[in-house]
Nucleic acid binder design. Structure first.
Lengths: 217, 217
DNA sequence: CTAACTATGTGAAGCCATTCACAAAACAGT
DNA sequence: ACTGTTTTGTGAATGGCTTCACATAGTTAG
Protein backbone atom coordinates (compact mmCIF):
# COMPACT_ATOMS: atom_id res chain seq x y z
CA UNK A 1 0.00 0.00 0.00
CA UNK A 2 2.35 2.62 1.29
CA UNK A 3 5.49 3.46 -0.63
CA UNK A 4 8.64 4.94 0.72
CA UNK A 5 11.31 5.80 -1.80
CA UNK A 6 9.63 3.49 -4.28
CA UNK A 7 9.09 0.48 -2.04
CA UNK A 8 5.71 -0.69 -0.92
CA UNK A 9 5.40 -1.03 2.84
CA UNK A 10 2.66 -3.35 4.05
CA UNK A 11 0.49 -2.59 7.03
CA UNK A 12 1.85 -5.72 8.68
CA UNK A 13 5.36 -4.35 8.45
CA UNK A 14 4.27 -1.23 10.31
CA UNK A 15 2.60 -3.37 12.93
CA UNK A 16 5.80 -5.29 13.41
CA UNK A 17 7.83 -2.11 13.72
CA UNK A 18 5.69 -1.31 16.75
CA UNK A 19 6.47 -4.74 18.10
CA UNK A 20 10.20 -4.38 17.49
CA UNK A 21 10.07 -1.03 19.21
CA UNK A 22 8.68 -2.57 22.38
CA UNK A 23 11.21 -5.38 22.37
CA UNK A 24 14.05 -2.91 21.89
CA UNK A 25 12.78 -0.87 24.84
CA UNK A 26 13.02 -4.01 26.98
CA UNK A 27 16.45 -4.93 25.64
CA UNK A 28 17.67 -1.41 26.35
CA UNK A 29 16.46 -1.66 29.93
CA UNK A 30 18.12 -5.04 30.24
CA UNK A 31 21.39 -3.43 29.19
CA UNK A 32 21.93 -5.05 25.79
CA UNK A 33 24.18 -3.19 23.35
CA UNK A 34 23.36 -5.16 20.23
CA UNK A 35 20.78 -7.69 19.11
CA UNK A 36 20.63 -10.05 16.14
CA UNK A 37 17.63 -10.50 13.87
CA UNK A 38 17.51 -14.04 15.23
CA UNK A 39 17.14 -12.91 18.85
CA UNK A 40 14.68 -10.21 17.89
CA UNK A 41 12.59 -12.76 15.99
CA UNK A 42 12.64 -15.27 18.83
CA UNK A 43 11.03 -12.83 21.27
CA UNK A 44 7.98 -12.77 19.04
CA UNK A 45 7.13 -15.73 16.88
CA UNK A 46 8.70 -14.34 13.76
CA UNK A 47 11.49 -15.40 11.44
CA UNK A 48 14.87 -13.63 11.36
CA UNK A 49 14.36 -13.02 7.64
CA UNK A 50 11.12 -11.20 8.37
CA UNK A 51 12.85 -8.88 10.80
CA UNK A 52 15.66 -8.10 8.39
CA UNK A 53 13.29 -7.57 5.47
CA UNK A 54 11.06 -5.26 7.50
CA UNK A 55 13.99 -3.09 8.55
CA UNK A 56 15.53 -3.15 5.09
CA UNK A 57 12.61 -1.12 3.74
CA UNK A 58 13.80 1.83 5.75
CA UNK A 59 17.57 1.56 5.50
CA UNK A 60 20.53 -0.45 6.72
CA UNK A 61 20.71 -0.42 10.47
CA UNK A 62 22.81 -3.46 11.27
CA UNK A 63 26.42 -4.54 11.21
CA UNK A 64 27.21 -7.85 9.59
CA UNK A 65 28.66 -10.32 12.00
CA UNK A 66 27.40 -8.32 14.96
CA UNK A 67 23.72 -7.44 14.70
CA UNK A 68 21.74 -4.25 15.35
CA UNK A 69 22.66 -1.55 17.88
CA UNK A 70 19.78 -1.66 20.38
CA UNK A 71 19.47 2.00 21.39
CA UNK A 72 20.17 3.37 17.96
CA UNK A 73 17.67 1.06 16.28
CA UNK A 74 15.03 1.91 18.84
CA UNK A 75 15.61 5.59 18.12
CA UNK A 76 15.41 5.01 14.38
CA UNK A 77 12.16 3.08 14.61
CA UNK A 78 10.71 5.82 16.80
CA UNK A 79 11.53 8.25 14.02
CA UNK A 80 10.01 6.03 11.33
CA UNK A 81 6.83 5.57 13.35
CA UNK A 82 6.69 9.26 14.17
CA UNK A 83 6.59 8.72 17.93
CA UNK A 84 9.63 10.85 18.65
CA UNK A 85 7.46 13.96 18.40
CA UNK A 86 4.31 15.16 20.10
CA UNK A 87 0.92 14.85 18.45
CA UNK A 88 -2.13 16.92 19.21
CA UNK A 89 -5.08 14.64 19.78
CA UNK A 90 -8.77 15.36 20.27
CA UNK A 91 -11.25 12.94 21.80
CA UNK A 92 -14.87 12.92 20.70
CA UNK A 93 -17.29 11.28 23.11
CA UNK A 94 -16.63 11.12 26.85
CA UNK A 95 -18.77 8.15 27.82
CA UNK A 96 -17.42 4.95 29.31
CA UNK A 97 -14.85 4.27 26.65
CA UNK A 98 -13.86 7.92 26.27
CA UNK A 99 -13.26 8.30 29.99
CA UNK A 100 -11.04 5.24 30.03
CA UNK A 101 -9.02 6.65 27.13
CA UNK A 102 -8.44 10.00 28.84
CA UNK A 103 -6.93 8.16 31.78
CA UNK A 104 -4.88 5.82 29.62
CA UNK A 105 -1.30 6.70 30.55
CA UNK A 106 0.29 4.86 27.66
CA UNK A 107 -0.90 7.55 25.23
CA UNK A 108 0.88 10.47 26.88
CA UNK A 109 3.97 8.32 27.32
CA UNK A 110 4.22 7.95 23.56
CA UNK A 111 3.67 11.62 22.82
CA UNK A 112 -0.05 11.48 22.07
CA UNK A 113 -1.51 14.40 23.99
CA UNK A 114 -5.24 14.81 24.34
CA UNK A 115 -5.81 18.54 23.97
CA UNK A 116 -9.57 18.68 23.43
CA UNK A 117 -12.60 16.68 24.46
CA UNK A 118 -15.99 16.90 22.77
CA UNK A 119 -19.45 15.63 23.62
CA UNK A 120 -23.03 16.45 22.69
CA UNK A 121 -24.46 15.95 26.18
CA UNK A 122 -25.24 19.33 27.74
CA UNK A 123 -24.60 17.91 31.21
CA UNK A 124 -21.05 16.99 30.27
CA UNK A 125 -20.16 20.13 28.33
CA UNK A 126 -18.14 22.47 30.51
CA UNK A 127 -17.01 19.73 32.88
CA UNK A 128 -13.37 18.72 33.18
CA UNK A 129 -11.64 15.36 32.75
CA UNK A 130 -8.02 15.11 33.84
CA UNK A 131 -7.82 18.86 33.52
CA UNK A 132 -9.28 18.99 30.03
CA UNK A 133 -12.53 20.84 29.40
CA UNK A 134 -15.36 19.13 27.54
CA UNK A 135 -16.53 21.19 24.56
CA UNK A 136 -19.76 21.14 22.61
CA UNK A 137 -19.40 18.93 19.56
CA UNK A 138 -21.09 21.76 17.62
CA UNK A 139 -17.78 23.61 17.76
CA UNK A 140 -15.84 20.57 16.59
CA UNK A 141 -14.57 21.85 13.29
CA UNK A 142 -13.48 25.30 14.39
CA UNK A 143 -11.75 24.07 17.54
CA UNK A 144 -9.95 21.28 15.69
CA UNK A 145 -8.50 23.86 13.36
CA UNK A 146 -7.68 26.43 16.03
CA UNK A 147 -5.80 23.86 18.11
CA UNK A 148 -3.95 22.21 15.24
CA UNK A 149 -5.36 18.81 16.02
CA UNK A 150 -3.67 16.09 13.97
CA UNK A 151 -5.34 12.96 15.34
CA UNK A 152 -8.94 12.40 16.42
CA UNK A 153 -10.07 9.55 18.64
CA UNK A 154 -13.73 8.64 18.32
CA UNK A 155 -15.60 7.05 21.22
CA UNK A 156 -19.16 7.67 20.16
CA UNK A 157 -22.14 5.42 19.40
CA UNK A 158 -22.12 3.68 16.03
CA UNK A 159 -25.17 5.64 14.93
CA UNK A 160 -23.39 9.01 14.84
CA UNK A 161 -19.85 7.85 14.05
CA UNK A 162 -20.00 8.40 10.29
CA UNK A 163 -21.45 11.89 10.73
CA UNK A 164 -18.64 12.94 13.02
CA UNK A 165 -16.03 11.33 10.82
CA UNK A 166 -17.25 13.36 7.87
CA UNK A 167 -16.95 16.53 9.90
CA UNK A 168 -13.53 15.64 11.23
CA UNK A 169 -12.33 14.93 7.71
CA UNK A 170 -13.75 18.22 6.43
CA UNK A 171 -11.77 19.95 9.18
CA UNK A 172 -8.65 18.62 7.50
CA UNK A 173 -7.74 15.94 10.04
CA UNK A 174 -6.25 12.93 8.28
CA UNK A 175 -5.76 10.40 11.09
CA UNK A 176 -8.65 8.88 13.01
CA UNK A 177 -8.88 6.13 15.59
CA UNK A 178 -12.42 4.89 16.06
CA UNK A 179 -13.90 2.74 18.82
CA UNK A 180 -17.38 2.76 17.34
CA UNK A 181 -18.75 -0.70 16.53
CA UNK A 182 -19.47 0.32 12.94
CA UNK A 183 -18.06 0.05 9.45
CA UNK A 184 -16.92 3.52 8.49
CA UNK A 185 -15.77 5.30 5.34
CA UNK A 186 -13.05 7.86 4.85
CA UNK A 187 -11.46 9.34 1.71
CA UNK A 188 -8.29 7.60 0.59
CA UNK A 189 -6.02 10.36 1.86
CA UNK A 190 -7.27 9.81 5.41
CA UNK A 191 -6.04 6.98 7.63
CA UNK A 192 -8.68 5.33 9.73
CA UNK A 193 -7.93 2.67 12.32
CA UNK A 194 -10.89 1.00 13.86
CA UNK A 195 -11.02 -0.91 17.12
CA UNK A 196 -14.19 -2.94 17.16
CA UNK A 197 -14.38 -4.91 20.38
CA UNK A 198 -17.49 -6.77 19.32
CA UNK A 199 -15.61 -8.02 16.26
CA UNK A 200 -12.73 -9.17 18.41
CA UNK A 201 -15.08 -11.20 20.56
CA UNK A 202 -16.72 -12.65 17.47
CA UNK A 203 -13.32 -13.91 16.40
CA UNK A 204 -12.97 -15.66 19.72
CA UNK A 205 -16.40 -17.20 19.59
CA UNK A 206 -15.75 -18.35 16.04
CA UNK A 207 -12.66 -20.17 17.18
CA UNK A 208 -14.43 -21.63 20.20
CA UNK A 209 -17.34 -22.75 18.05
CA UNK A 210 -15.23 -24.30 15.34
CA UNK A 211 -12.16 -25.52 17.18
CA UNK A 212 -13.08 -29.15 16.79
CA UNK A 213 -13.30 -28.70 13.03
CA UNK A 214 -10.02 -26.93 12.30
CA UNK A 215 -8.29 -29.96 10.94
CA UNK A 216 -11.18 -31.97 9.62
CA UNK A 217 -9.32 -32.84 6.44
CA UNK B 1 -4.79 -21.15 9.32
CA UNK B 2 -8.15 -22.55 10.29
CA UNK B 3 -9.66 -25.43 8.37
CA UNK B 4 -13.27 -26.33 8.09
CA UNK B 5 -14.13 -29.49 6.25
CA UNK B 6 -10.74 -29.38 4.61
CA UNK B 7 -10.67 -25.74 3.56
CA UNK B 8 -8.39 -23.15 5.06
CA UNK B 9 -10.23 -20.13 6.42
CA UNK B 10 -8.14 -17.00 6.78
CA UNK B 11 -8.47 -14.62 9.69
CA UNK B 12 -9.50 -11.92 7.22
CA UNK B 13 -12.43 -14.03 6.10
CA UNK B 14 -13.65 -14.25 9.69
CA UNK B 15 -13.26 -10.50 10.04
CA UNK B 16 -15.35 -9.98 6.97
CA UNK B 17 -18.04 -12.34 8.22
CA UNK B 18 -18.45 -9.94 11.16
CA UNK B 19 -18.76 -7.11 8.69
CA UNK B 20 -21.32 -8.93 6.57
CA UNK B 21 -23.27 -9.69 9.71
CA UNK B 22 -23.58 -6.00 10.56
CA UNK B 23 -24.60 -5.08 7.04
CA UNK B 24 -27.23 -7.80 7.03
CA UNK B 25 -28.60 -6.51 10.33
CA UNK B 26 -29.06 -3.11 8.67
CA UNK B 27 -30.59 -4.58 5.54
CA UNK B 28 -33.01 -6.59 7.65
CA UNK B 29 -34.10 -3.45 9.48
CA UNK B 30 -34.49 -1.69 6.16
CA UNK B 31 -36.83 -4.44 5.06
CA UNK B 32 -34.78 -6.10 2.32
CA UNK B 33 -35.62 -9.70 1.47
CA UNK B 34 -32.58 -10.53 -0.63
CA UNK B 35 -29.20 -9.00 -1.38
CA UNK B 36 -26.65 -9.70 -4.10
CA UNK B 37 -22.94 -10.14 -3.52
CA UNK B 38 -22.52 -6.96 -5.52
CA UNK B 39 -24.69 -4.89 -3.18
CA UNK B 40 -23.13 -6.47 -0.13
CA UNK B 41 -19.66 -5.66 -1.46
CA UNK B 42 -20.56 -2.08 -2.30
CA UNK B 43 -21.52 -1.27 1.30
CA UNK B 44 -17.94 -1.99 2.29
CA UNK B 45 -15.14 -1.48 -0.15
CA UNK B 46 -14.94 -5.09 -1.18
CA UNK B 47 -15.38 -7.01 -4.41
CA UNK B 48 -18.41 -9.20 -5.10
CA UNK B 49 -16.06 -12.11 -5.73
CA UNK B 50 -14.61 -11.68 -2.26
CA UNK B 51 -18.04 -11.87 -0.69
CA UNK B 52 -18.99 -14.97 -2.64
CA UNK B 53 -15.68 -16.69 -1.93
CA UNK B 54 -15.89 -15.93 1.79
CA UNK B 55 -19.37 -17.39 2.05
CA UNK B 56 -18.52 -20.36 -0.13
CA UNK B 57 -16.14 -21.67 2.53
CA UNK B 58 -19.12 -22.39 4.73
CA UNK B 59 -21.74 -23.55 2.29
CA UNK B 60 -24.07 -22.38 -0.45
CA UNK B 61 -26.39 -19.72 0.82
CA UNK B 62 -27.50 -17.94 -2.32
CA UNK B 63 -29.86 -18.44 -5.20
CA UNK B 64 -28.48 -17.84 -8.68
CA UNK B 65 -30.16 -15.00 -10.45
CA UNK B 66 -31.57 -13.70 -7.17
CA UNK B 67 -28.92 -13.28 -4.49
CA UNK B 68 -28.82 -14.14 -0.80
CA UNK B 69 -31.81 -14.22 1.57
CA UNK B 70 -31.07 -11.46 4.07
CA UNK B 71 -32.54 -12.86 7.29
CA UNK B 72 -31.51 -16.41 6.61
CA UNK B 73 -27.93 -15.45 5.77
CA UNK B 74 -27.68 -13.29 8.88
CA UNK B 75 -28.85 -16.23 10.95
CA UNK B 76 -26.36 -18.55 9.28
CA UNK B 77 -23.44 -16.19 9.83
CA UNK B 78 -24.46 -15.82 13.47
CA UNK B 79 -24.21 -19.57 13.75
CA UNK B 80 -20.82 -19.72 12.03
CA UNK B 81 -19.45 -16.98 14.27
CA UNK B 82 -20.98 -18.60 17.33
CA UNK B 83 -22.89 -15.50 18.38
CA UNK B 84 -26.25 -17.23 18.43
CA UNK B 85 -25.43 -18.64 21.84
CA UNK B 86 -24.40 -17.16 25.17
CA UNK B 87 -20.79 -17.14 26.30
CA UNK B 88 -19.57 -16.92 29.87
CA UNK B 89 -16.98 -14.20 30.11
CA UNK B 90 -14.68 -13.14 32.94
CA UNK B 91 -12.97 -9.77 33.19
CA UNK B 92 -9.58 -9.45 34.87
CA UNK B 93 -8.64 -5.93 35.96
CA UNK B 94 -11.26 -3.35 36.83
CA UNK B 95 -9.30 -0.14 36.25
CA UNK B 96 -10.20 2.49 33.68
CA UNK B 97 -10.39 0.16 30.73
CA UNK B 98 -12.04 -2.65 32.69
CA UNK B 99 -14.76 -0.35 33.98
CA UNK B 100 -15.52 0.85 30.48
CA UNK B 101 -15.80 -2.74 29.28
CA UNK B 102 -18.26 -3.72 32.01
CA UNK B 103 -20.53 -0.92 30.86
CA UNK B 104 -20.10 -1.70 27.18
CA UNK B 105 -23.59 -2.65 26.08
CA UNK B 106 -22.55 -4.12 22.76
CA UNK B 107 -21.10 -7.18 24.53
CA UNK B 108 -24.27 -8.30 26.23
CA UNK B 109 -26.23 -7.60 23.05
CA UNK B 110 -24.12 -10.20 21.23
CA UNK B 111 -24.41 -12.80 23.97
CA UNK B 112 -21.11 -12.14 25.75
CA UNK B 113 -22.03 -12.07 29.41
CA UNK B 114 -19.55 -10.93 32.02
CA UNK B 115 -20.04 -13.31 34.93
CA UNK B 116 -16.95 -12.64 37.00
CA UNK B 117 -14.63 -9.71 37.67
CA UNK B 118 -11.16 -10.03 39.18
CA UNK B 119 -8.65 -7.57 40.56
CA UNK B 120 -5.66 -7.64 42.89
CA UNK B 121 -6.45 -4.35 44.62
CA UNK B 122 -7.79 -5.04 48.12
CA UNK B 123 -9.86 -1.85 47.98
CA UNK B 124 -11.71 -3.07 44.92
CA UNK B 125 -12.23 -6.67 45.97
CA UNK B 126 -15.74 -7.16 47.31
CA UNK B 127 -17.13 -4.11 45.54
CA UNK B 128 -19.73 -4.38 42.80
CA UNK B 129 -19.76 -3.16 39.21
CA UNK B 130 -23.06 -3.34 37.35
CA UNK B 131 -24.16 -5.93 39.85
CA UNK B 132 -21.08 -8.11 39.48
CA UNK B 133 -18.83 -8.69 42.48
CA UNK B 134 -15.09 -8.14 42.20
CA UNK B 135 -13.10 -11.18 43.27
CA UNK B 136 -9.53 -11.58 44.39
CA UNK B 137 -7.35 -12.57 41.45
CA UNK B 138 -5.82 -15.18 43.76
CA UNK B 139 -8.95 -17.24 43.25
CA UNK B 140 -8.82 -16.82 39.47
CA UNK B 141 -8.24 -20.41 38.47
CA UNK B 142 -10.78 -22.05 40.76
CA UNK B 143 -13.53 -19.54 40.01
CA UNK B 144 -12.96 -19.74 36.26
CA UNK B 145 -13.50 -23.46 36.46
CA UNK B 146 -16.44 -23.35 38.83
CA UNK B 147 -18.29 -20.84 36.63
CA UNK B 148 -17.52 -22.49 33.31
CA UNK B 149 -15.87 -19.39 31.93
CA UNK B 150 -15.12 -19.74 28.23
CA UNK B 151 -13.68 -16.32 27.41
CA UNK B 152 -11.42 -14.08 29.48
CA UNK B 153 -10.97 -10.36 28.88
CA UNK B 154 -7.73 -8.91 30.21
CA UNK B 155 -7.55 -5.26 31.19
CA UNK B 156 -4.42 -5.32 33.33
CA UNK B 157 -1.04 -3.55 33.12
CA UNK B 158 1.43 -4.95 30.60
CA UNK B 159 3.78 -6.01 33.39
CA UNK B 160 1.45 -8.67 34.79
CA UNK B 161 -0.42 -9.63 31.61
CA UNK B 162 1.71 -12.67 30.71
CA UNK B 163 1.50 -14.03 34.26
CA UNK B 164 -2.28 -13.88 34.24
CA UNK B 165 -2.49 -15.31 30.74
CA UNK B 166 -0.48 -18.32 31.85
CA UNK B 167 -2.85 -18.87 34.75
CA UNK B 168 -5.94 -18.41 32.60
CA UNK B 169 -4.57 -20.93 30.10
CA UNK B 170 -3.78 -23.41 32.84
CA UNK B 171 -7.41 -23.09 33.96
CA UNK B 172 -8.39 -24.46 30.56
CA UNK B 173 -9.72 -21.26 29.01
CA UNK B 174 -8.89 -21.15 25.32
CA UNK B 175 -10.11 -17.71 24.23
CA UNK B 176 -8.58 -14.50 25.50
CA UNK B 177 -9.05 -10.86 24.57
CA UNK B 178 -6.27 -8.66 25.89
CA UNK B 179 -6.09 -4.89 26.20
CA UNK B 180 -2.60 -4.89 27.69
CA UNK B 181 -0.03 -2.96 25.63
CA UNK B 182 2.27 -5.94 25.48
CA UNK B 183 3.32 -8.77 23.18
CA UNK B 184 1.94 -11.92 24.70
CA UNK B 185 2.34 -15.66 24.18
CA UNK B 186 -0.20 -18.44 24.31
CA UNK B 187 -0.07 -22.13 23.32
CA UNK B 188 -1.26 -22.85 19.81
CA UNK B 189 -4.56 -24.32 20.97
CA UNK B 190 -5.50 -21.02 22.59
CA UNK B 191 -6.84 -18.05 20.62
CA UNK B 192 -5.57 -14.67 21.74
CA UNK B 193 -6.82 -11.40 20.30
CA UNK B 194 -4.94 -8.35 21.38
CA UNK B 195 -6.16 -4.77 21.24
CA UNK B 196 -3.15 -2.52 21.61
CA UNK B 197 -4.26 1.07 21.45
CA UNK B 198 -0.72 2.39 21.51
CA UNK B 199 0.02 0.34 18.39
CA UNK B 200 -3.05 1.74 16.67
CA UNK B 201 -1.89 5.27 17.34
CA UNK B 202 1.59 4.40 16.10
CA UNK B 203 0.02 3.35 12.82
CA UNK B 204 -1.62 6.74 12.57
CA UNK B 205 1.53 8.66 13.38
CA UNK B 206 3.43 6.56 10.86
CA UNK B 207 1.00 7.56 8.16
CA UNK B 208 1.05 11.20 9.24
CA UNK B 209 4.84 11.21 9.32
CA UNK B 210 5.30 9.53 5.98
CA UNK B 211 2.33 10.67 3.97
CA UNK B 212 4.42 12.92 1.76
CA UNK B 213 6.64 9.98 0.87
CA UNK B 214 4.08 7.34 -0.05
CA UNK B 215 4.50 7.73 -3.76
CA UNK B 216 8.09 8.91 -4.03
CA UNK B 217 8.82 6.54 -6.88
C1' DC C 1 47.51 -10.66 9.42
C1' DT C 2 44.98 -14.59 8.51
C1' DA C 3 41.41 -17.88 9.05
C1' DA C 4 37.14 -19.17 10.84
C1' DC C 5 32.91 -17.49 12.20
C1' DT C 6 28.79 -14.70 12.49
C1' DA C 7 25.04 -12.06 10.89
C1' DT C 8 23.27 -8.68 7.55
C1' DG C 9 20.95 -7.39 3.22
C1' DT C 10 18.48 -8.89 -0.71
C1' DG C 11 17.10 -11.27 -5.19
C1' DA C 12 14.48 -15.32 -6.03
C1' DA C 13 11.22 -18.81 -4.74
C1' DG C 14 7.26 -20.19 -2.40
C1' DC C 15 2.91 -19.62 -0.52
C1' DC C 16 -1.44 -17.70 0.53
C1' DA C 17 -5.23 -14.43 -0.19
C1' DT C 18 -7.72 -11.89 -3.67
C1' DT C 19 -9.54 -11.26 -8.15
C1' DC C 20 -10.90 -12.95 -12.63
C1' DA C 21 -13.84 -15.21 -15.62
C1' DC C 22 -17.15 -18.35 -16.91
C1' DA C 23 -20.26 -22.34 -16.60
C1' DA C 24 -24.36 -23.45 -14.19
C1' DA C 25 -28.68 -22.29 -12.37
C1' DA C 26 -32.56 -19.73 -11.31
C1' DC C 27 -35.60 -15.83 -12.31
C1' DA C 28 -38.74 -12.76 -15.31
C1' DG C 29 -41.30 -11.55 -19.06
C1' DT C 30 -43.70 -13.08 -23.12
C1' DA D 1 -42.46 -23.40 -22.52
C1' DC D 2 -38.89 -20.47 -24.27
C1' DT D 3 -35.53 -16.68 -24.35
C1' DG D 4 -32.82 -13.36 -22.29
C1' DT D 5 -31.08 -11.68 -18.03
C1' DT D 6 -29.25 -12.00 -13.54
C1' DT D 7 -26.28 -13.78 -10.15
C1' DT D 8 -24.14 -17.55 -7.83
C1' DG D 9 -20.25 -20.80 -7.06
C1' DT D 10 -15.65 -21.98 -8.17
C1' DG D 11 -11.25 -23.41 -10.76
C1' DA D 12 -7.59 -20.74 -12.56
C1' DA D 13 -4.81 -16.60 -12.72
C1' DT D 14 -2.90 -12.86 -10.32
C1' DG D 15 -0.62 -10.30 -6.93
C1' DG D 16 1.63 -9.49 -2.73
C1' DC D 17 3.66 -10.96 1.63
C1' DT D 18 6.85 -14.24 3.72
C1' DT D 19 10.60 -17.33 3.65
C1' DC D 20 14.75 -19.14 1.56
C1' DA D 21 19.40 -19.02 0.51
C1' DC D 22 23.59 -17.01 -0.31
C1' DA D 23 26.95 -13.43 -1.38
C1' DT D 24 28.87 -9.85 1.29
C1' DA D 25 31.03 -7.76 5.02
C1' DG D 26 32.30 -7.24 9.46
C1' DT D 27 33.99 -9.66 14.04
C1' DT D 28 36.97 -12.51 16.88
C1' DA D 29 40.78 -15.40 18.12
C1' DG D 30 45.33 -16.92 17.55
Amino acid sequence: MVRITGKRISESTINRLSIYYRILESLEREGYQTVSSKDLAQREKLTPAQVRKDLSFFGQFGTRGLGYPVSELRRQIAEILGINKRWNVALVGIGNVGSALVSYKEFAKQGFQIKLIFDNDQRKIGSFHKGIEVHDVKNLKSLLNKNNIEIVILAVPASVAQLIIDEVVSAGVSAILSFAPANLRVPSNVTLRSVNMAMELEHLSFHLTNENLYYTA
